[in-house]
Design a protein around this nucleic acid. Sequence first.
DNA 1: TCTCCAATTCTAGCGTTGCTAGCGAACAGG
DNA 2: CCTGTTCGCTAGCAACGCTAGAATTGGAGA
Lengths: 192, 192
Amino acid sequence: MAGMSIHARRERERAERERLIVTAARELAEAEGWEAVTTRRLADRVEYSQPVLYSHFKGMDAIVAAVAVDGFADLAAEMRAARTSTRGPKRALANVAAAYVAFAEQRPALYDAMFNQTVSLAFATPETPAALRAGFDELRQVVRPFAADDNEDLLAEVLWSGLHGLVSLTRGGRLPRENHDRRLALLLSRLA
Amino acid sequence: MAGMSIHARRERERAERERLIVTAARELAEAEGWEAVTTRRLADRVEYSQPVLYSHFKGMDAIVAAVAVDGFADLAAEMRAARTSTRGPKRALANVAAAYVAFAEQRPALYDAMFNQTVSLAFATPETPAALRAGFDELRQVVRPFAADDNEDLLAEVLWSGLHGLVSLTRGGRLPRENHDRRLALLLSRLA
DNA sequence: TCTCCAATTCTAGCGTTGCTAGCGAACAGG
DNA sequence: CCTGTTCGCTAGCAACGCTAGAATTGGAGA
């Protein structure tokens, strides 16, 4: 039965091509913004025709969602690094918050995919991708020392909201970039 | 010289038509979301042809921006009502925050225009529309009792960030709607 | 009142978008 | 070597934002 290994190779190649599409979409978005990521340009970039994209993803939204999942994994990793490289609950909190903000500032297109662009990502359900949970877990761990036993989740969610609000309003020009650090410090001091 | 009054009438009619366009855009967006607000459908609704839109606004973005300015005026008015109908700093804060959240929940398309859709609105500059300042002033007034003299603005900005983050993550499905009230209460208790 | 000119609105169309139908080539299996 | 299926491509659709140029409207002067 040579057929089986052939089938396996095909699936492998197919998975590779899917990765190629997702990373190409991500690179294009980070270089020129999401409005520049069209099916034609993306197909051009991966050197396939448009319809190939639709054999992997249901549509453009699904491609954005795939990039977003990647983004959540990256964000979770960076927050984890920020947390484990510090001692002391207060410093850990400050470091993780700074990592979150830095991520949003340095990868605006990725952050957009995660929080603005895509609406069709399952979040607090059983089929939520692991990467999404991982990010939230980091926040929960870092606020644990400051929470009463019964509201750890709640505090993590409020922290997340505060960080997202700060980042989001600043990036949209609603808040002046000037006092960004002071705002962040104030938020953290009130939550801790 | 009858020409002058004719000119005046024409300008009046023109202004009326502009209002018609903006309110039609707003109604269409609130009824079916912004993706349904196309130049063709909008032109249809106001019973003019597409190019008329471009004699009033530079493009679709400018129309969204005009709706957003309306939205800021509404939001400011509702927050003002919430503040002045209450006695006591803590209650005032809670009431204004609740008004903000209610606004975002009941008029999602409007909130979208104000915070997600449009990027091209001047905010902390001299030519910032009055409606935009008014909303922020309400927040500033309501946090004044809880701020040290030198960081009143900062605290208002952090409150705004927290509220926007809460609303934005909840609406995008990132936070379960379940504990929304408890999250809001926690945020306020930490800021006050 | 009739004609003319300027302002204004409409028709028609351009280039691009996301997405899909259906043809043609490539390739595993007999 | 032939056959059947799988796969990617060419071509095209409807709808998008936006614009050029024709057509219509309506005030002004004879």
